[in-house]
């Protein structure tokens, strides 16, 4: 019965550490979404033209759409490896609640994809001539918004984990659900660029964050149970 003696916190940190260790052993896999993000953002000025005003106007949209796509790219492997080697089944039948496992895995995913995006975003904002007053808004929306992307995306990843070629399907499922985050985040940055208060939008993104934080792990658990039986 020693397994049941593990506290929730212990379980959480064990899974988190395990996922991070695995990810750091495959550094290129971890870096690929980030590189993708940077390349997609640089493609937009090439496609649209280098006028400063145009770029500054569409910068929030470009950065946010690219981060949606980059997150999407990394979602596919969230549960895949664990599903293939059978450790996912072990988590499902272990005495600890599924909620802790899914929460830990999603947190690890965010640390590996969301956080690097936040760190790189200011650099790209410079490239896109984003007005200076909206940097803070960009940072804050990414800080609260990217976890939402990980949480909602994890539901899609859990639903498609049993399917062999689930990549495209995953984006089809998840992208429509990302729309509210995209809308509020870009409008917060837009508002900030006009030096207006953007607290309202940020509050809604934070609400989405806490809502998905509490609800998504349950949905992910249910989805994992369905797709692994």
């Amino acid at each position: 019965m020693s397994a049941t003696a593990l506290s929730y916190r212990k379980t959480f940190s064990l899974i988190l550490k395990r996922d991070l260790t695995i990810a750091f052993r495959h550094k290129d896999e971890m870096l690929n979404p980030l590189l993708f993000f940077i390349i997609v953002v640089t493609l937009f000025p090439l496609g649209i033209g280098p006028e400063t005003n145009t770029l500054a106007k569409i910068a929030p949209g470009i950065i946010w759409v690219s981060s949606l796509l980059a997150t999407l790219l990394s979602l596919d492997r969230l549960f895949k490896a664990d599903h293939n080697d059978g450790s996912l089944e072990q988590m499902l039948i272990s005495p600890q609640p599924l909620f802790i496992f899914t929460l830990a895995k999603i947190c690890a995913h965010w640390l590996l994809t969301g956080l690097p995006l936040i760190l790189v975003a200011p650099l790209l904002a410079v490239l896109l001539h984003l007005p200076e007053q909206s940097y803070q808004a960009l940072f804050l929306t990414l800080l609260f918004g990217t976890p939402v992307l990980s949480f909602i995306g994890a539901i899609g990843a859990a639903l498609t984990v049993g399917i062999k070629k689930g990549g495209v399907l995953l984006s089809l499922i998840v992208l429509p659900l990302y729309i509210p985050v995209l809308i509020f985040a870009t409008s917060a940055i837009d508002t900030a660029s006009m030096s207006l208060p953007y607290g309202g939008q940020l509050a809604i993104i934070a609400a989405l964050f806490f809502g998905t934080l509490t609800l998504a792990p349950f949905a992910v658990g249910a989805a994992l149970k369905v797709s692994t039986n």
């Binding site: 909602i152 539901i155 899609g156 639903l159 499922i173 659900l177 949905a219 249910a222 989805a223 369905v226 797709s227």
Partner: peptide
Amino acid sequence: AAGILALV
């Protein structure tokens, strides 16, 4: 699975 997605 489709049902879970519909609920989400």
